[in-house]
Simulated scan of single mutants.
Amino acid sequence: MTFGDIMAQLQRMDAHLDTLFTELYQVNIHVSRIARWQALEASPPPPLVGSDSEAEDDDDVEKLLAYVEQEPSKSMRDALLPSVKALITNKLLRHAEMDVKVSVLSCIIEIVRITAPDALYKDKQMKVSFQLILAVIEDMSNVSTSSYKKVVSILDTIANVKLCLVMLDLECNALVVEMFQSFLKIIRSNHPPTVLSAIDIIMNLVIDESEDISLGLLSSLFAIVRKANQNVSPISWTLGEQIITRINAQLEKIMAPTQKLPSKVE
Rank of each mutant, 00 (worst) to 15 (best):
Y121C: 02
L87I: 05
S51D: 10
R188C: 09
S153M: 08
I6L: 09
M7D: 07
K227F: 04
D5P: 00
A96I: 05
N142F: 09
I243G: 04
I34N: 05
R12H: 06
N28F: 00
R77Y: 00
E209V: 06
S144M: 12
S236P: 03
I29L: 06
D156M: 10
V143W: 00
A256E: 14
I224D: 00
Q26W: 02
T89M: 06
I201G: 00
I202P: 01
L10A: 06
R113E: 04
Y148K: 10
P257S: 12
L261H: 08
I88S: 07
A135T: 14
E241D: 07
R226N: 09
D18T: 13
S106F: 07
V112G: 02
A228K: 14
L155E: 12
V177W: 01
D59E: 11
G50M: 01
L132W: 03
P44D: 05
S53N: 02
L20Y: 00
D78L: 05
Q9A: 08
I254K: 13
L134V: 09
D59V: 10
L196N: 05
Q125C: 08
F183K: 07
K162C: 08
N90Y: 08
Q70R: 15
S147Y: 12
D5W: 00
S220G: 05
H191Y: 04
M255Y: 12
F222K: 12
I243W: 09
K185Q: 09
D200W: 05
V225F: 01
H30F: 08
S106K: 09
A42C: 14
S220Y: 00
W237R: 00
V61T: 04
N28T: 09
M203V: 07
P82F: 03
H191V: 08
D169I: 06
I137F: 11
I201A: 08
T2C: 07
P46K: 13
L261M: 15
T115G: 04
K162P: 01
E23M: 03
A8M: 01
K227Y: 09
S147L: 05
I88G: 01
I247Q: 11
D18N: 04
A223E: 10
M7E: 11
L24P: 00
K227C: 00
S236D: 07
V195D: 02
S146N: 15
D78H: 06
N142M: 06
E138R: 15
L93I: 11
R33I: 04
L17E: 11
Q131V: 06
S219M: 10
E71F: 09
L87G: 08
K253F: 10
S263I: 14
L81R: 12
S220V: 09
D14G: 05
S153G: 10
V100F: 00
Q259F: 15
I199N: 06
Q125N: 09
Q181D: 14
S189L: 13
H16G: 05
Q259R: 13
C164E: 13
I186R: 08
Q181Y: 11
L24M: 12
S214W: 04
V136G: 06
I34K: 01
K74I: 01
R33E: 12
N190P: 03
V128N: 11
T22V: 03
D156F: 12
P82Y: 04
V136T: 15
